[in-house]
């Protein structure tokens, strides 16, 4: 039982429509394990079920069947408020849509202070200082705190979500397309921050992305997700040598520089 996270046979079926009962299997029988300090990527096309899987692990969306174990404990069996707070203190997420991630009625300050409320008294110390420091580390000025979400760009919002995670120093970060709206020059810096988080706190990270190239450079292991299933699991180096699933091959051929090495 030394795994940090153990995802077992997780399936999610959405039922849409009132009477028509249309069923979509978004995640189908997914299994994987994650060690402390490990960075993995989940790569798949749009609609392959990546976000659904992330929300299940974050204990935000109940799975139809299967279970998620964190440090040996079934996440979906946690019921007590205090235990739940502890879980989210240790496992936190960044969501894909930076626009929907902010309540338009509140200033940016709220989203960071929310995270602070998960910390213990003694960890909190000087809250304003912590918040400012976190902002600085993602390259934002402290005046962003008193802005309303609609005054910020998509990229700025994503950086604030990253800052929120950094303040918590959790054991596991699930980052759903965390840099999709951040320009290439800043992106490298942000990604470096994630690796720094691992170096300093032994934090594990699950990156969710469309971009196999990005996954190749940041992760220890890459899971390929296709139509709700994990169809292939490789280290970046293996990826260049042997892949089996046709979908992975197609993905590889779309990344020109990887393809060149591969052939």
């Amino acid at each position: 039982m030394s795994y940090l996270l153990d995802v077992r046979y997780v399936t999610k079926v959405y039922t849409a429509g009132l009477l028509s009962r249309e069923r979509i299997t978004a995640v189908n029988n997914v299994n994987f394990k994650l060690n402390s300090g490990e960075i993995i990527s989940i790569v798949g096309e749009s609609g392959s079920g990546k976000t659904t899987l992330a929300k299940i692990i974050l204990r935000l969306l109940p799975p139809t069947s299967g279970s998620v174990y964190f440090e040996g404990k079934d996440v979906w069996s946690i019921k007590r408020r205090e235990e739940l707070r502890q879980y989210w203190r240790q496992v936190h997420g960044i969501f894909q849509d930076p626009y929907a991630s902010f309540n338009p009625m509140f200033k940016v300050r709220r989203i960071l202070y929310q995270a602070l409320s998960l910390l213990d008294e003694n960890e909190r110390g000087d809250p304003e200082g912590l918040v400012r420091e976190a902002l600085k580390s993602v390259g934002l000025q402290p005046d962003a705190l008193d802005k309303y979400p609609h005054e910020l760009s998509g990229g700025m919002r994503q950086r604030i979500m990253v800052a929120r995670c950094f303040m918590l120093r959790p054991k596991l970060v699930i980052a759903d397309e965390p840099t999709s709206m951040i320009d290439a020059s800043t992106r490298a810096g942000i990604l470096k921050l994630f690796t720094k988080l691992r170096e300093e706190n032994n934090t594990s990270i699950i990156f969710i992305t469309h971009d196999l190239g990005l996954a190749y450079y940041v992760s220890d292991r890459i899971l390929i997700m296709y139509k709700g299933e994990i169809v292939e699991e490789r280290t970046p180096d293996e990826l260049l040598e042997k892949v089996e699933h046709p979908y992975t091959k197609r993905l590889l051929s779309d990344v020109p520089f990887l393809y060149r090495k591969w052939s």
Binding site: K55, L58, L60, R81, L84, R85, W88, H92, G93, F95, S101, N103, I111, Q114, A115, S117, L118, R164
Partner: peptide, 8 residues
């Protein structure tokens, strides 16, 4: 989700 993850 963010509010929920903050234990609200």
């Amino acid at each position: 989700h963010f509010s929920r993850m903050a234990g609200y």
